[in-house]
Design a protein around this nucleic acid. Structure first.
Lengths: 158, 158
DNA sequence: AAAGATTGAGTATTCAATCTTG
DNA sequence: CAAGATTGAATACTCAATCTTT
């Protein structure tokens, strides 16, 4: 068996830094949202997608695609948000199997209050703290890795 | 109230790409570890730190610092790994309040089998797929953001 | 009282099984 | 049977309360 190509110091640092940075970033954003607006990052994503859709309404299937969530995760999360009065579920007119998810007035109020602060947090932690060049580099690298992972995912599934 | 500085298309893309990339990356790494070696990424991190420590032994407190985990998360995770025979807990000689965590022979076998494949996965998904320049950029940006988040964390706590 | 660690309750996420409609 | 969605069980993480030792 071949001797494995272990990671160099630099490579280890890159891998660890990426993971730590992202953990810290997600932690920061989530904490700020919960403290100020009483919602999680997941809640925020759901509400943003709904509030940007025509009539604040989206088919559950489409919402799931936008969020890139598994169907059962979405279903459980919608149940919790519905209980809190942030959204409601209605029968889908075109396909009786589907469900329409609709943001409530309370949900609109919540996202209208939360969004400006959330954007400021993303700016102060990430966007405004990098040079335009760094931000462009980061964006390009992220997309390159994503494309690579899509390749690898196809290999796995084949 | 001031009109919020919404994110531009480019800024949104950077923010979304970073999140998607990291989610996909974590998913890929975790799935490969579970399929091939029967352990999660969290298990892997615990075992790596233990197996690199003298005598495969680490104080719970130190292990927690290395992992950057909350103490209760660590405790619950150690309980599960202990049940599976990957590690054991022993009384700490120097401080009766502390606990020593020790990797078992089974734990050593597991990590010895898993590590080379894991490193290959990190290489194929991230390291080897980027140019040295891109990797250096990514590493530098990640560290810069981490430093920024540490600043912001202090502001919050103050 | 503070430090190190564990426990139990509440919340999230995933997987498999199920149910209804196309 | 396939597609869209829900449910229940199993696992994971967080928070607050607790216990023991310093």
């Amino acid at each position: 068996m071949m001797e494995p190509r272990w990671l160099s110091e630099k490579e280890q640092l890159a891998w660890r830094s990426l993971n730590w940075m992202h953990d810290d970033l997600v932690d920061f954003i989530d904490r700020r949202l919960r403290m100020r607006s009483g919602i999680s990052s997941a809640d925020y994503q759901v509400l943003i997608h709904l509030s940007e859709a025509p009539d604040g309404r989206l088919r559950s299937l489409d919402l799931g695609r936008l969020l890139r969530w598994e169907k059962s995760r979405l279903s459980q999360h919608l149940t919790r948000m519905e209980k809190r009065g942030l959204l409601s579920r209605e029968a889908c007119p075109s396909d009786q199997r589907g469900i329409d998810v609709v943001v409530t007035p309370a949900g609109r109020d919540t996202i209208r209050e939360a969004a400006p602060h959330h954007v400021e947090d993303v700016r102060s932690a990430l966007i405004d703290h990098l040079t335009p060049g760094e931000l462009a580099d980061l964006s390009a690298i992220a997309q390159k890795i994503q494309a690579r992972l899509a390749e690898l995912g196809e290999e796995d599934g084949r």
